[in-house]
Design a binder for these strands. Sequence first.
DNA 1: CGTCGAATTGATGTCATTCAACTACAGTGG
DNA 2: CCACTGTAGTTGAATGACATCAATTCGACG
Lengths: 196, 196
Amino acid sequence: MGENFYHYFKNEWGLSESDINSLAGYFRKLEVDKGDVIVRKGNNQPYFYFVEKGMLRVHSTSEDGKDHILHFAPENWIVGDRGSIYFNEAAFFSIDVIEDSVIMRFDMALMDQLSVVCQNFRQNNDRLLHNHIRHLNRRINLLQEASARTRYLNFIELYPDVLLRVPQWMVASYLGIAPESLSRVRRELAKENFRS
Amino acid sequence: MGENFYHYFKNEWGLSESDINSLAGYFRKLEVDKGDVIVRKGNNQPYFYFVEKGMLRVHSTSEDGKDHILHFAPENWIVGDRGSIYFNEAAFFSIDVIEDSVIMRFDMALMDQLSVVCQNFRQNNDRLLHNHIRHLNRRINLLQEASARTRYLNFIELYPDVLLRVPQWMVASYLGIAPESLSRVRRELAKENFRS
DNA sequence: CGTCGAATTGATGTCATTCAACTACAGTGG
DNA sequence: CCACTGTAGTTGAATGACATCAATTCGACG
């Protein structure tokens, strides 16, 4: 089933090894290529995806054709359009593949089954969701108050690994600034570090 | 215990009337005044607060002394610093009272008890959390791509009731723009509506 | 070696901020 | 009842940050 997913079952959701073995029917391993689109904005696509290996991106294209990245999803992230999954809506975000990846697809049935087989699952997952909300709150705060420069520095600190794996224009898109602006920010930073 | 809180127990968390009666010991009703500070950034304050009546605001003061409002919390909102509650950290946000309010305070003990007495609680709460995340994602997307004007229009649409209850500079703070800018945006909109 | 997308750079434009002045108004104390 | 004070909101002028547009360079890959 994959090292990472297995590890996630055990350490994040709190399942025992025997529990895990009974769940094989609830998810499906998919090998996807760079460029593939997994969820398309506007469709209904009620699935979660766990990233076993590689990287996805969650983004939204606005009416004027500009693309904004909500977040990247490297190994051990779970993504999916919550509007689709929980409220049967058309997806608000698109998800596509930016590195050849191995992902595990599942849906609500797995979640329900998890809470049946494992006493602690709901509680553990609850904690993960609150943690996620906590991060989103900080991101909002950062978008409200910080300059392009500060946002970039924050990104480096939070996701140094992602930084090295994605093209620069995607980082700009995540930060909500133009690629040219990011280029200039980087030049300034490089200059300063050279001085000191 | 309060109309709204009772209603929330029943309709959002899915508790029966008899369940609810057994929980009185797990929360406390507080009457607070405009201007009171409930959670102070930097302290550890592991409580949730349900707003029965009135309004709170969750905000963060940055190093340069500027204040940014993460969100308002009118009736039926639950607020609390998740870093404090779940991870025993210092609070990242402050919470204070912007209308004389009645609030219900509780902590993790209530949540644990809820999952004991009510089979569906976790599942229902799970859904609420995902819905919350969904809203935060859209807010991030809006901050990334939208102008001051668009953000304001979006705010009017989402929270027309809040708009009428808070001073304009707080709306500006929520939107992440200067109060002067909001004033100008409003002037433009007023002008346009007058024409047509 | 040629091609194509990514990144850089410069010139210019635009939107929002900043600072300062002024108005409106509510609350306070004489 | 009226001056005094402080806060909110508006307006104007100057500034600044980032966007846009266009040209060029860089670098990976066939």
